[in-house]
Design a protein around this nucleic acid. Structure first.
Length: 567
RNA sequence: CGGGGCGUAGCGCAGCCUGGUAGCGCACCUGGUUUGGGACCAGGGGGUCGAAGGUUCGAAUCCUUUCGCCCCGACCA
Protein backbone atom coordinates (compact mmCIF):
# COMPACT_ATOMS: atom_id res chain seq x y z
CA UNK A 1 0.00 0.00 0.00
CA UNK A 2 1.18 3.48 -0.87
CA UNK A 3 0.63 5.86 2.01
CA UNK A 4 -0.45 8.58 -0.41
CA UNK A 5 -3.48 6.42 -1.26
CA UNK A 6 -4.21 5.09 2.24
CA UNK A 7 -7.15 6.54 4.09
CA UNK A 8 -5.50 7.04 7.45
CA UNK A 9 -6.30 10.50 8.76
CA UNK A 10 -3.62 10.98 11.42
CA UNK A 11 -3.66 13.94 13.76
CA UNK A 12 -1.17 15.58 16.05
CA UNK A 13 -3.78 16.28 18.73
CA UNK A 14 -6.03 13.78 20.41
CA UNK A 15 -9.76 14.38 20.56
CA UNK A 16 -10.45 15.93 23.95
CA UNK A 17 -12.78 13.16 25.05
CA UNK A 18 -10.24 10.36 24.70
CA UNK A 19 -8.58 9.58 28.01
CA UNK A 20 -7.00 6.15 27.56
CA UNK A 21 -3.90 5.55 25.42
CA UNK A 22 -5.67 2.96 23.30
CA UNK A 23 -8.51 5.35 22.60
CA UNK A 24 -6.27 8.34 21.84
CA UNK A 25 -3.82 6.50 19.64
CA UNK A 26 -6.40 4.51 17.68
CA UNK A 27 -8.19 7.77 16.88
CA UNK A 28 -5.05 9.82 16.28
CA UNK A 29 -3.49 7.18 14.06
CA UNK A 30 -6.66 6.89 12.02
CA UNK A 31 -7.76 3.36 12.95
CA UNK A 32 -11.20 4.25 14.27
CA UNK A 33 -13.58 7.20 14.32
CA UNK A 34 -16.34 7.85 16.80
CA UNK A 35 -19.91 8.02 15.53
CA UNK A 36 -21.72 8.57 18.81
CA UNK A 37 -21.54 7.61 22.47
CA UNK A 38 -20.17 4.07 22.52
CA UNK A 39 -20.38 3.81 18.71
CA UNK A 40 -17.30 3.52 16.53
CA UNK A 41 -16.49 3.18 12.87
CA UNK A 42 -13.47 1.20 11.77
CA UNK A 43 -11.27 2.90 9.16
CA UNK A 44 -9.08 0.87 6.78
CA UNK A 45 -6.22 0.05 9.14
CA UNK A 46 -8.59 -0.57 12.04
CA UNK A 47 -10.52 -2.95 9.85
CA UNK A 48 -7.38 -4.88 8.89
CA UNK A 49 -6.44 -5.33 12.55
CA UNK A 50 -9.98 -6.33 13.42
CA UNK A 51 -10.03 -8.94 10.64
CA UNK A 52 -6.67 -10.33 11.69
CA UNK A 53 -7.84 -10.83 15.26
CA UNK A 54 -11.07 -12.33 14.03
CA UNK A 55 -9.15 -14.76 11.81
CA UNK A 56 -7.10 -16.04 14.75
CA UNK A 57 -10.24 -16.58 16.78
CA UNK A 58 -12.00 -18.34 13.93
CA UNK A 59 -9.05 -20.59 13.15
CA UNK A 60 -8.72 -21.81 16.71
CA UNK A 61 -12.46 -22.25 17.15
CA UNK A 62 -12.80 -24.25 13.94
CA UNK A 63 -9.87 -26.38 15.06
CA UNK A 64 -11.94 -27.61 18.04
CA UNK A 65 -14.80 -28.72 15.85
CA UNK A 66 -17.03 -25.81 16.76
CA UNK A 67 -19.08 -24.65 13.77
CA UNK A 68 -19.51 -21.04 12.76
CA UNK A 69 -23.01 -19.75 12.22
CA UNK A 70 -24.49 -16.29 12.02
CA UNK A 71 -27.50 -15.22 14.02
CA UNK A 72 -29.49 -12.09 13.39
CA UNK A 73 -28.73 -8.88 15.20
CA UNK A 74 -32.47 -8.33 15.43
CA UNK A 75 -34.27 -10.87 17.59
CA UNK A 76 -38.01 -11.28 18.16
CA UNK A 77 -38.80 -10.20 21.72
CA UNK A 78 -40.83 -13.34 22.18
CA UNK A 79 -37.71 -15.48 22.61
CA UNK A 80 -36.58 -13.21 25.41
CA UNK A 81 -39.94 -13.52 27.07
CA UNK A 82 -39.63 -17.31 26.95
CA UNK A 83 -36.32 -17.27 28.82
CA UNK A 84 -37.62 -14.73 31.29
CA UNK A 85 -34.84 -12.29 30.53
CA UNK A 86 -37.04 -9.77 28.72
CA UNK A 87 -37.96 -8.29 32.06
CA UNK A 88 -34.77 -8.83 34.05
CA UNK A 89 -32.17 -7.70 31.52
CA UNK A 90 -33.08 -4.10 32.11
CA UNK A 91 -32.45 -1.04 30.02
CA UNK A 92 -29.31 -2.47 28.46
CA UNK A 93 -31.58 -4.48 26.24
CA UNK A 94 -32.49 -2.20 23.38
CA UNK A 95 -36.13 -2.79 22.41
CA UNK A 96 -38.11 -1.52 19.47
CA UNK A 97 -41.26 -2.04 17.41
CA UNK A 98 -41.53 -2.71 13.72
CA UNK A 99 -44.20 -1.11 11.50
CA UNK A 100 -46.71 -3.71 12.56
CA UNK A 101 -45.93 -2.92 16.20
CA UNK A 102 -44.32 -6.29 16.81
CA UNK A 103 -41.67 -6.23 19.54
CA UNK A 104 -37.99 -6.84 18.78
CA UNK A 105 -34.68 -6.48 20.56
CA UNK A 106 -31.14 -5.84 19.39
CA UNK A 107 -29.23 -8.92 20.52
CA UNK A 108 -26.88 -8.22 23.44
CA UNK A 109 -26.05 -11.95 23.61
CA UNK A 110 -27.61 -14.95 21.92
CA UNK A 111 -28.47 -17.75 24.32
CA UNK A 112 -32.16 -17.45 23.46
CA UNK A 113 -31.63 -17.49 19.72
CA UNK A 114 -29.23 -20.41 19.71
CA UNK A 115 -31.54 -22.46 21.91
CA UNK A 116 -34.30 -21.75 19.44
CA UNK A 117 -32.05 -22.92 16.62
CA UNK A 118 -31.41 -26.36 18.12
CA UNK A 119 -34.77 -26.74 19.80
CA UNK A 120 -36.85 -29.39 18.05
CA UNK A 121 -34.01 -30.01 15.61
CA UNK A 122 -31.64 -31.87 17.87
CA UNK A 123 -33.85 -34.59 19.28
CA UNK A 124 -31.42 -37.29 20.32
CA UNK A 125 -28.33 -37.69 22.48
CA UNK A 126 -26.76 -39.25 19.38
CA UNK A 127 -26.61 -35.76 17.84
CA UNK A 128 -24.70 -34.37 20.82
CA UNK A 129 -22.45 -32.65 21.66
CA UNK A 130 -22.71 -29.69 19.30
CA UNK A 131 -20.90 -26.38 19.54
CA UNK A 132 -22.14 -23.43 17.47
CA UNK A 133 -20.44 -20.06 17.48
CA UNK A 134 -20.59 -16.75 15.68
CA UNK A 135 -18.54 -13.57 15.42
CA UNK A 136 -21.08 -10.79 15.11
CA UNK A 137 -22.25 -7.40 16.23
CA UNK A 138 -23.87 -7.06 19.62
CA UNK A 139 -25.68 -4.09 21.06
CA UNK A 140 -25.99 -3.29 24.74
CA UNK A 141 -27.35 0.06 25.70
CA UNK A 142 -24.73 0.58 28.41
CA UNK A 143 -25.56 3.05 31.14
CA UNK A 144 -22.20 4.62 30.64
CA UNK A 145 -20.15 3.74 27.58
CA UNK A 146 -16.51 4.75 27.98
CA UNK A 147 -12.87 4.09 27.16
CA UNK A 148 -13.35 4.00 23.40
CA UNK A 149 -13.58 0.45 22.09
CA UNK A 150 -13.15 -1.03 25.56
CA UNK A 151 -16.73 -0.38 26.59
CA UNK A 152 -18.83 0.53 23.62
CA UNK A 153 -22.52 -0.01 23.13
CA UNK A 154 -22.10 -1.67 19.77
CA UNK A 155 -19.28 -4.19 19.67
CA UNK A 156 -18.26 -7.45 18.08
CA UNK A 157 -18.18 -10.59 20.13
CA UNK A 158 -17.31 -14.17 19.38
CA UNK A 159 -20.01 -16.05 21.23
CA UNK A 160 -20.13 -19.81 21.25
CA UNK A 161 -22.73 -22.12 22.70
CA UNK A 162 -22.31 -25.83 23.28
CA UNK A 163 -25.01 -28.43 23.90
CA UNK A 164 -24.47 -31.63 25.86
CA UNK A 165 -26.28 -34.67 27.08
CA UNK A 166 -24.78 -34.44 30.57
CA UNK A 167 -22.61 -32.45 32.92
CA UNK A 168 -19.50 -34.49 32.18
CA UNK A 169 -19.62 -33.67 28.50
CA UNK A 170 -20.25 -30.00 29.32
CA UNK A 171 -17.20 -29.88 31.57
CA UNK A 172 -15.08 -31.52 28.89
CA UNK A 173 -15.99 -28.79 26.42
CA UNK A 174 -15.33 -26.17 29.09
CA UNK A 175 -11.80 -27.54 29.43
CA UNK A 176 -11.34 -27.54 25.66
CA UNK A 177 -12.42 -23.91 25.52
CA UNK A 178 -10.08 -22.92 28.33
CA UNK A 179 -7.26 -24.45 26.35
CA UNK A 180 -8.44 -22.86 23.09
CA UNK A 181 -8.76 -19.39 24.59
CA UNK A 182 -5.28 -19.77 26.00
CA UNK A 183 -4.02 -20.55 22.51
CA UNK A 184 -5.86 -17.58 21.00
CA UNK A 185 -4.59 -14.99 23.45
CA UNK A 186 -1.10 -16.46 23.31
CA UNK A 187 -1.09 -16.18 19.53
CA UNK A 188 -2.18 -12.57 19.84
CA UNK A 189 0.88 -11.98 21.99
CA UNK A 190 -1.01 -10.87 25.08
CA UNK A 191 0.05 -11.14 28.70
CA UNK A 192 -3.05 -12.67 30.24
CA UNK A 193 -4.35 -14.87 33.01
CA UNK A 194 -7.31 -17.21 33.15
CA UNK A 195 -8.87 -16.29 36.46
CA UNK A 196 -11.57 -17.77 38.66
CA UNK A 197 -14.60 -15.57 38.36
CA UNK A 198 -17.84 -14.86 40.04
CA UNK A 199 -20.55 -16.46 37.91
CA UNK A 200 -22.88 -13.57 38.55
CA UNK A 201 -26.50 -13.63 37.61
CA UNK A 202 -25.95 -16.03 34.75
CA UNK A 203 -25.48 -18.81 37.29
CA UNK A 204 -23.89 -22.16 36.64
CA UNK A 205 -21.29 -24.09 38.50
CA UNK A 206 -18.11 -22.56 37.14
CA UNK A 207 -16.83 -19.67 35.15
CA UNK A 208 -13.46 -18.34 34.18
CA UNK A 209 -12.48 -14.95 32.89
CA UNK A 210 -9.51 -14.27 30.64
CA UNK A 211 -7.85 -11.10 31.80
CA UNK A 212 -5.19 -9.18 29.95
CA UNK A 213 -2.87 -7.55 32.44
CA UNK A 214 -2.95 -3.82 31.82
CA UNK A 215 -2.74 -0.75 34.02
CA UNK A 216 -5.98 0.74 32.81
CA UNK A 217 -8.03 -2.39 33.42
CA UNK A 218 -11.43 -2.09 35.03
CA UNK A 219 -11.06 -5.27 37.08
CA UNK A 220 -8.84 -6.05 40.05
CA UNK A 221 -7.28 -9.47 39.83
CA UNK A 222 -5.29 -11.42 42.36
CA UNK A 223 -2.26 -13.26 41.02
CA UNK A 224 0.22 -15.60 42.70
CA UNK A 225 3.89 -14.70 42.34
CA UNK A 226 4.89 -18.32 42.03
CA UNK A 227 2.18 -20.70 40.89
CA UNK A 228 -0.54 -20.31 38.30
CA UNK A 229 -3.28 -19.25 40.70
CA UNK A 230 -5.18 -16.17 39.58
CA UNK A 231 -8.67 -14.93 40.35
CA UNK A 232 -10.91 -11.96 39.98
CA UNK A 233 -10.90 -10.17 43.33
CA UNK A 234 -14.62 -10.85 43.53
CA UNK A 235 -13.91 -14.57 43.72
CA UNK A 236 -10.32 -14.72 45.00
CA UNK A 237 -9.37 -17.04 47.84
CA UNK A 238 -6.30 -17.00 50.05
CA UNK A 239 -4.61 -19.31 52.51
CA UNK A 240 -5.99 -18.65 55.95
CA UNK A 241 -4.30 -15.60 57.36
CA UNK A 242 -1.98 -16.13 60.31
CA UNK A 243 0.19 -13.89 62.44
CA UNK A 244 3.32 -14.18 64.54
CA UNK A 245 2.00 -11.59 66.95
CA UNK A 246 1.06 -13.30 70.15
CA UNK A 247 -2.59 -13.60 71.01
CA UNK A 248 -3.77 -11.46 73.89
CA UNK A 249 -4.50 -13.81 76.78
CA UNK A 250 -7.66 -12.89 78.61
CA UNK A 251 -10.74 -14.53 79.98
CA UNK A 252 -14.04 -13.57 78.52
CA UNK A 253 -14.83 -10.15 79.94
CA UNK A 254 -16.66 -6.99 79.05
CA UNK A 255 -14.52 -3.85 78.89
CA UNK A 256 -15.68 -0.29 78.94
CA UNK A 257 -14.41 1.34 75.75
CA UNK A 258 -15.91 4.82 75.81
CA UNK A 259 -16.53 6.26 72.38
CA UNK A 260 -14.12 3.76 70.75
CA UNK A 261 -15.93 3.09 67.51
CA UNK A 262 -13.17 2.10 65.12
CA UNK A 263 -10.99 -0.98 65.08
CA UNK A 264 -7.97 1.28 65.42
CA UNK A 265 -9.29 3.03 68.53
CA UNK A 266 -10.34 -0.16 70.26
CA UNK A 267 -7.13 -2.03 69.45
CA UNK A 268 -4.89 0.82 70.60
CA UNK A 269 -6.90 1.18 73.77
CA UNK A 270 -6.78 -2.53 74.61
CA UNK A 271 -3.23 -3.05 73.23
CA UNK A 272 -4.42 -5.75 70.86
CA UNK A 273 -3.36 -6.25 67.25
CA UNK A 274 -6.18 -5.74 64.73
CA UNK A 275 -5.70 -9.36 63.67
CA UNK A 276 -7.36 -10.38 66.93
CA UNK A 277 -10.36 -8.14 66.51
CA UNK A 278 -13.63 -8.59 64.68
CA UNK A 279 -14.91 -5.93 62.34
CA UNK A 280 -18.62 -5.52 61.72
CA UNK A 281 -19.73 -4.22 58.32
CA UNK A 282 -23.38 -3.28 58.16
CA UNK A 283 -25.18 -3.36 54.83
CA UNK A 284 -28.69 -2.96 53.62
CA UNK A 285 -29.53 -5.95 51.43
CA UNK A 286 -31.98 -5.38 48.63
CA UNK A 287 -34.12 -8.28 47.46
CA UNK A 288 -36.76 -8.30 44.76
CA UNK A 289 -39.48 -8.19 47.40
CA UNK A 290 -37.87 -6.62 50.50
CA UNK A 291 -34.98 -4.78 52.12
CA UNK A 292 -33.11 -5.97 55.18
CA UNK A 293 -30.20 -4.87 57.38
CA UNK A 294 -27.45 -7.50 57.50
CA UNK A 295 -24.17 -7.52 59.44
CA UNK A 296 -21.00 -9.12 58.05
CA UNK A 297 -18.12 -9.96 60.38
CA UNK A 298 -14.53 -10.14 59.17
CA UNK A 299 -11.17 -9.83 60.87
CA UNK A 300 -10.31 -6.30 62.00
CA UNK A 301 -7.35 -6.25 59.63
CA UNK A 302 -9.42 -7.36 56.63
CA UNK A 303 -11.99 -5.78 54.38
CA UNK A 304 -15.37 -7.07 53.25
CA UNK A 305 -15.63 -8.21 49.62
CA UNK A 306 -19.04 -7.01 48.50
CA UNK A 307 -19.69 -9.55 45.76
CA UNK A 308 -18.89 -12.37 48.18
CA UNK A 309 -21.17 -10.78 50.74
CA UNK A 310 -23.92 -10.48 48.16
CA UNK A 311 -23.55 -14.12 47.20
CA UNK A 312 -23.64 -15.15 50.89
CA UNK A 313 -27.00 -13.54 51.55
CA UNK A 314 -28.43 -13.93 48.05
CA UNK A 315 -29.34 -10.26 47.75
CA UNK A 316 -29.70 -8.50 44.43
CA UNK A 317 -27.70 -5.61 45.76
CA UNK A 318 -25.97 -4.36 48.89
CA UNK A 319 -25.82 -0.72 49.84
CA UNK A 320 -24.28 1.01 52.85
CA UNK A 321 -26.64 1.14 55.80
CA UNK A 322 -27.50 4.55 57.21
CA UNK A 323 -26.87 5.20 60.89
CA UNK A 324 -30.57 5.79 61.38
CA UNK A 325 -31.48 2.43 59.85
CA UNK A 326 -28.97 0.69 62.10
CA UNK A 327 -30.40 2.30 65.22
CA UNK A 328 -33.89 1.41 64.14
CA UNK A 329 -33.14 -2.32 64.19
CA UNK A 330 -31.27 -2.02 67.50
CA UNK A 331 -27.64 -1.96 66.39
CA UNK A 332 -25.07 0.12 68.28
CA UNK A 333 -22.77 1.38 65.53
CA UNK A 334 -19.15 0.94 66.60
CA UNK A 335 -19.99 -1.68 69.18
CA UNK A 336 -21.43 -4.51 67.10
CA UNK A 337 -20.31 -8.08 67.70
CA UNK A 338 -21.61 -11.56 66.93
CA UNK A 339 -21.96 -12.60 70.57
CA UNK A 340 -25.58 -12.40 71.56
CA UNK A 341 -26.55 -10.59 68.40
CA UNK A 342 -30.19 -11.39 67.72
CA UNK A 343 -31.84 -8.35 66.25
CA UNK A 344 -30.52 -8.85 62.69
CA UNK A 345 -29.31 -11.51 60.30
CA UNK A 346 -25.53 -11.83 60.26
CA UNK A 347 -22.71 -13.72 58.54
CA UNK A 348 -19.20 -14.50 59.76
CA UNK A 349 -16.11 -14.93 57.64
CA UNK A 350 -14.90 -18.54 57.47
CA UNK A 351 -11.45 -17.61 58.72
CA UNK A 352 -12.90 -16.62 62.10
CA UNK A 353 -14.36 -20.07 62.66
CA UNK A 354 -13.12 -21.57 65.95
CA UNK A 355 -10.69 -18.68 66.53
CA UNK A 356 -9.98 -17.64 70.11
CA UNK A 357 -8.78 -14.62 72.11
CA UNK A 358 -10.66 -12.11 70.02
CA UNK A 359 -12.03 -8.65 70.66
CA UNK A 360 -15.45 -7.63 69.43
CA UNK A 361 -18.29 -5.23 70.10
CA UNK A 362 -20.63 -6.10 72.95
CA UNK A 363 -23.79 -4.81 71.26
CA UNK A 364 -24.00 -2.25 74.01
CA UNK A 365 -22.97 1.40 73.85
CA UNK A 366 -19.31 1.92 74.95
CA UNK A 367 -18.53 -1.76 75.63
CA UNK A 368 -16.43 -4.43 73.89
CA UNK A 369 -15.81 -8.07 74.73
CA UNK A 370 -12.31 -9.45 75.11
CA UNK A 371 -11.26 -13.11 75.22
CA UNK A 372 -13.96 -14.09 72.73
CA UNK A 373 -13.98 -17.58 71.20
CA UNK A 374 -15.84 -18.32 68.01
CA UNK A 375 -17.65 -21.54 68.81
CA UNK A 376 -21.33 -22.33 68.94
CA UNK A 377 -22.33 -20.51 65.76
CA UNK A 378 -24.47 -22.33 63.27
CA UNK A 379 -22.68 -23.61 60.19
CA UNK A 380 -24.81 -21.50 57.84
CA UNK A 381 -23.56 -18.32 59.52
CA UNK A 382 -20.14 -18.87 57.97
CA UNK A 383 -19.21 -17.77 54.50
CA UNK A 384 -16.18 -16.57 52.60
CA UNK A 385 -16.44 -12.79 52.96
CA UNK A 386 -12.92 -11.40 53.05
CA UNK A 387 -11.40 -9.38 50.26
CA UNK A 388 -7.98 -10.78 49.38
CA UNK A 389 -5.22 -8.18 49.61
CA UNK A 390 -1.78 -7.87 48.10
CA UNK A 391 0.64 -9.67 50.39
CA UNK A 392 -1.80 -12.40 51.41
CA UNK A 393 -0.75 -16.00 50.85
CA UNK A 394 -1.73 -18.14 47.89
CA UNK A 395 -4.37 -20.75 48.57
CA UNK A 396 -2.55 -23.20 46.28
CA UNK A 397 1.13 -22.82 47.08
CA UNK A 398 1.39 -20.41 50.02
CA UNK A 399 3.50 -17.87 48.18
CA UNK A 400 2.73 -14.16 48.17
CA UNK A 401 -0.21 -12.85 46.17
CA UNK A 402 -0.28 -9.53 44.44
CA UNK A 403 -3.14 -7.49 43.02
CA UNK A 404 -3.10 -6.08 39.53
CA UNK A 405 -5.46 -4.60 36.99
CA UNK A 406 -6.95 -6.62 34.18
CA UNK A 407 -9.16 -6.13 31.15
CA UNK A 408 -11.65 -8.92 30.55
CA UNK A 409 -11.26 -10.26 27.01
CA UNK A 410 -12.95 -13.61 27.40
CA UNK A 411 -15.36 -15.36 29.72
CA UNK A 412 -16.37 -18.99 29.70
CA UNK A 413 -19.39 -20.34 31.55
CA UNK A 414 -20.92 -23.66 32.43
CA UNK A 415 -24.57 -22.78 32.08
CA UNK A 416 -26.08 -26.14 32.95
CA UNK A 417 -29.73 -26.59 32.07
CA UNK A 418 -30.92 -23.07 32.90
CA UNK A 419 -31.82 -21.86 29.42
CA UNK A 420 -32.85 -25.20 27.99
CA UNK A 421 -35.26 -25.66 30.88
CA UNK A 422 -36.70 -22.18 30.64
CA UNK A 423 -37.24 -22.50 26.90
CA UNK A 424 -38.30 -26.10 26.80
CA UNK A 425 -35.40 -27.36 24.70
CA UNK A 426 -35.07 -31.08 25.23
CA UNK A 427 -33.67 -34.24 23.69
CA UNK A 428 -34.15 -37.93 24.31
CA UNK A 429 -31.36 -39.53 26.35
CA UNK A 430 -30.07 -43.11 26.17
CA UNK A 431 -33.03 -44.29 28.20
CA UNK A 432 -35.51 -42.61 25.89
CA UNK A 433 -36.21 -40.01 28.54
CA UNK A 434 -36.76 -36.36 27.69
CA UNK A 435 -34.02 -34.10 29.12
CA UNK A 436 -33.15 -30.42 28.87
CA UNK A 437 -29.75 -29.80 27.24
CA UNK A 438 -26.70 -29.02 29.32
CA UNK A 439 -25.12 -25.89 27.90
CA UNK A 440 -21.86 -24.02 28.02
CA UNK A 441 -21.26 -20.53 26.65
CA UNK A 442 -18.00 -18.89 25.72
CA UNK A 443 -17.37 -15.27 24.77
CA UNK A 444 -14.48 -13.24 23.38
CA UNK A 445 -14.65 -9.47 22.94
CA UNK A 446 -13.21 -9.23 19.44
CA UNK A 447 -13.56 -5.47 18.89
CA UNK A 448 -12.45 -4.86 22.45
CA UNK A 449 -9.29 -6.80 21.64
CA UNK A 450 -8.35 -4.20 19.04
CA UNK A 451 -8.10 -1.65 21.85
CA UNK A 452 -6.56 -4.14 24.27
CA UNK A 453 -3.67 -4.76 21.89
CA UNK A 454 -2.73 -1.10 22.26
CA UNK A 455 -3.65 -0.74 25.91
CA UNK A 456 -1.15 -3.53 26.52
CA UNK A 457 1.44 -2.24 24.06
CA UNK A 458 2.16 1.44 23.51
CA UNK A 459 4.60 4.16 24.56
CA UNK A 460 4.44 7.94 24.69
CA UNK A 461 4.80 8.15 20.91
CA UNK A 462 1.97 5.85 19.88
CA UNK A 463 0.89 2.31 19.14
CA UNK A 464 3.27 -0.64 19.16
CA UNK A 465 1.73 -3.43 17.09
CA UNK A 466 3.08 -6.93 17.03
CA UNK A 467 3.44 -8.86 13.80
CA UNK A 468 0.39 -10.98 14.50
CA UNK A 469 -2.06 -8.08 14.47
CA UNK A 470 -0.33 -5.14 12.77
CA UNK A 471 -2.12 -3.75 9.71
CA UNK A 472 1.23 -3.74 7.85
CA UNK A 473 4.54 -5.20 8.87
CA UNK A 474 6.82 -2.55 7.43
CA UNK A 475 6.74 1.16 6.59
CA UNK A 476 9.23 2.14 3.92
CA UNK A 477 9.96 5.78 4.61
CA UNK A 478 11.35 7.71 1.71
CA UNK A 479 13.06 10.67 3.32
CA UNK A 480 12.87 12.90 0.27
CA UNK A 481 10.47 11.92 -2.49
CA UNK A 482 12.14 14.35 -4.89
CA UNK A 483 15.36 12.38 -4.64
CA UNK A 484 15.02 9.92 -7.50
CA UNK A 485 17.68 7.58 -6.24
CA UNK A 486 15.88 7.22 -2.89
CA UNK A 487 12.53 6.86 -4.56
CA UNK A 488 13.74 4.21 -7.00
CA UNK A 489 15.52 2.21 -4.35
CA UNK A 490 12.49 2.29 -2.02
CA UNK A 491 10.08 1.41 -4.80
CA UNK A 492 12.16 -1.57 -5.76
CA UNK A 493 12.20 -2.92 -2.20
CA UNK A 494 8.49 -2.22 -1.93
CA UNK A 495 7.61 -4.05 -5.15
CA UNK A 496 9.82 -7.01 -4.31
CA UNK A 497 8.33 -7.54 -0.85
CA UNK A 498 4.85 -6.96 -2.13
CA UNK A 499 5.30 -9.66 -4.76
CA UNK A 500 6.39 -11.95 -1.96
CA UNK A 501 3.03 -11.22 -0.28
CA UNK A 502 4.35 -9.22 2.64
CA UNK A 503 2.00 -6.54 3.95
CA UNK A 504 4.11 -3.46 3.32
CA UNK A 505 3.37 0.25 3.42
CA UNK A 506 5.45 2.80 1.54
CA UNK A 507 5.33 6.38 2.71
CA UNK A 508 5.53 8.11 -0.65
CA UNK A 509 3.96 11.35 0.49
CA UNK A 510 5.74 14.55 -0.35
CA UNK A 511 6.42 15.38 3.29
CA UNK A 512 9.54 15.97 5.32
CA UNK A 513 11.31 13.21 7.18
CA UNK A 514 10.18 14.38 10.62
CA UNK A 515 6.54 14.32 9.63
CA UNK A 516 6.76 10.78 8.28
CA UNK A 517 8.72 9.29 11.14
CA UNK A 518 6.25 10.80 13.64
CA UNK A 519 3.39 9.23 11.74
CA UNK A 520 5.28 5.95 11.67
CA UNK A 521 5.79 6.01 15.43
CA UNK A 522 2.16 6.96 16.02
CA UNK A 523 0.79 4.19 13.82
CA UNK A 524 3.34 1.78 15.26
CA UNK A 525 4.04 -0.82 12.58
CA UNK A 526 6.64 -3.36 13.78
CA UNK A 527 9.40 -2.18 11.42
CA UNK A 528 10.37 0.79 9.28
CA UNK A 529 12.95 1.03 6.55
CA UNK A 530 14.38 4.52 6.31
CA UNK A 531 15.71 5.41 2.89
CA UNK A 532 17.49 8.70 3.32
CA UNK A 533 20.68 10.65 2.94
CA UNK A 534 22.96 7.75 3.79
CA UNK A 535 21.82 5.92 0.68
CA UNK A 536 24.50 7.88 -1.19
CA UNK A 537 27.13 6.16 0.95
CA UNK A 538 25.31 2.87 0.40
CA UNK A 539 23.42 2.56 3.68
CA UNK A 540 19.81 2.44 4.84
CA UNK A 541 18.32 2.01 8.30
CA UNK A 542 15.88 -0.48 9.75
CA UNK A 543 13.90 0.70 12.79
CA UNK A 544 12.27 -1.62 15.26
CA UNK A 545 9.19 0.08 16.70
CA UNK A 546 9.24 -1.79 20.00
CA UNK A 547 12.68 -0.52 20.99
CA UNK A 548 13.04 2.35 18.50
CA UNK A 549 16.52 1.03 17.84
CA UNK A 550 17.99 1.76 14.44
CA UNK A 551 20.03 -0.78 12.58
CA UNK A 552 22.26 0.52 9.79
CA UNK A 553 22.59 -1.96 6.93
CA UNK A 554 24.22 -1.91 3.51
CA UNK A 555 21.67 -1.17 0.84
CA UNK A 556 22.33 -4.53 -0.83
CA UNK A 557 21.66 -6.38 2.44
CA UNK A 558 18.44 -4.63 3.38
CA UNK A 559 16.14 -6.97 1.50
CA UNK A 560 17.45 -10.17 3.01
CA UNK A 561 17.50 -8.63 6.48
CA UNK A 562 13.89 -7.51 6.05
CA UNK A 563 12.78 -10.93 4.85
CA UNK A 564 14.32 -12.35 7.98
CA UNK A 565 12.55 -9.84 10.26
CA UNK A 566 9.16 -9.95 8.60
CA UNK A 567 8.92 -13.71 8.24
C1' C B 1 -29.57 5.96 37.20
C1' G B 2 -27.19 9.97 40.86
C1' G B 3 -23.41 14.06 40.67
C1' G B 4 -20.41 17.45 37.58
C1' G B 5 -18.59 19.65 32.95
C1' C B 6 -18.79 20.99 27.86
C1' G B 7 -21.38 22.08 22.87
C1' U B 8 -18.49 28.43 18.50
C1' A B 9 -14.75 26.13 11.04
C1' G B 10 -12.42 19.16 10.12
C1' C B 11 -9.53 19.19 15.21
C1' G B 12 -8.10 22.11 19.69
C1' C B 13 -9.82 26.62 21.75
C1' A B 14 -10.88 32.32 22.76
C1' G B 15 -15.12 35.53 22.71
C1' C B 16 -20.27 35.06 26.83
C1' C B 17 -19.60 37.85 33.03
C1' U B 18 -20.60 43.72 31.00
C1' G B 19 -25.76 42.21 24.21
C1' G B 20 -23.91 45.76 18.73
C1' U B 21 -23.79 40.71 13.79
C1' A B 22 -17.37 35.97 15.07
C1' G B 23 -11.71 35.23 16.03
C1' C B 24 -6.87 32.33 17.06
C1' G B 25 -3.67 27.82 16.40
C1' C B 26 -3.46 23.31 13.70
C1' A B 27 -5.53 21.06 9.33
C1' C B 28 -7.19 22.28 4.12
C1' C B 29 -6.54 24.85 -1.19
C1' U B 30 -3.00 27.78 -4.81
C1' G B 31 2.06 29.37 -5.96
C1' G B 32 7.12 29.32 -4.51
C1' U B 33 11.24 27.74 -1.40
C1' U B 34 12.57 23.47 1.71
C1' U B 35 13.48 17.80 2.50
C1' G B 36 16.88 13.28 8.77
C1' G B 37 12.68 14.50 13.85
C1' G B 38 5.51 17.15 12.92
C1' A B 39 9.32 23.45 7.74
C1' C B 40 8.95 28.64 5.72
C1' C B 41 6.90 32.86 2.75
C1' A B 42 2.72 34.87 0.11
C1' G B 43 -2.29 34.41 -1.15
C1' G B 44 -7.07 31.80 -0.25
C1' G B 45 -11.62 28.81 1.12
C1' G B 46 -14.60 27.24 5.06
C1' G B 47 -18.95 28.54 10.76
C1' U B 48 -27.65 28.08 10.53
C1' C B 49 -22.22 29.87 17.34
C1' G B 50 -26.04 22.03 19.11
C1' A B 51 -31.66 22.89 18.52
C1' A B 52 -36.34 25.36 19.75
C1' G B 53 -38.79 29.23 22.14
C1' G B 54 -38.52 33.91 24.86
C1' U B 55 -36.54 39.05 26.38
C1' U B 56 -34.56 43.16 23.27
C1' C B 57 -34.27 48.07 18.21
C1' G B 58 -30.45 44.23 18.23
C1' A B 59 -28.61 37.66 21.10
C1' A B 60 -22.86 33.25 20.33
C1' U B 61 -23.57 36.48 24.74
C1' C B 62 -29.42 37.18 29.05
C1' C B 63 -33.89 33.64 30.34
C1' U B 64 -36.64 28.84 29.54
C1' U B 65 -36.94 24.14 27.39
C1' U B 66 -34.64 20.34 24.79
C1' C B 67 -30.86 17.29 22.34
C1' G B 68 -25.86 15.64 22.14
C1' C B 69 -20.99 14.48 24.08
C1' C B 70 -17.52 13.73 28.13
C1' C B 71 -15.92 12.93 33.33
C1' C B 72 -16.75 10.72 38.68
C1' G B 73 -19.85 7.05 40.89
C1' A B 74 -23.64 3.00 40.79
C1' C B 75 -24.39 -0.79 37.09
C1' C B 76 -22.00 -4.19 33.50
C1' A B 77 -25.06 -12.14 30.62
Amino acid sequence: MKFSKLYAPTTKDAPKDATLPSHQYLVRAGFIAQAGSGLYNFLPMGKIVFDKIKAVVKEEMDETGAQEIQMGVVTPADLWKQSGRYDVFGKELCRFLDRKENEFVLGPTHEEVVVDIVRNRINSYKQLPVHLYQITTKFRDEARPRFGLLRGREFTMKDGYSFHEDEISMKQEFAVMEETYTKIFTRLGLDFRAVDADSGAIGGSGSKEFMVLAQNGEDDIVVCEKCSYAANIEAAKRAKKTTTIEAPQADLAKFKTPNMKTIEDVCNFLHVDAFYSIKAVVKKAIYSDKEEIIVFFVRGCDALQEVKARNACGALDLVDAELEEMQKVGLHAGFIGPIGLECVKFYIDLELKEEKNLVCGANEEDYHWVGVSMFNFKEERYADLTEVKAGDSCVCCGETLYVTKGIEVGHIFQLGQKYAKAMGATFLDKNGKSQPFYMGCYGIGVSRLVAVMIEASHDDKGCIWNKQTSPYLLDIIVSNMKDEVQNNYATQIYETLRNEKYAVLMDDRNERFGFKIKDYELIGLPYALIVGKELEEGFVEIVERQTLEKLVVKKEDALSKLRELLA
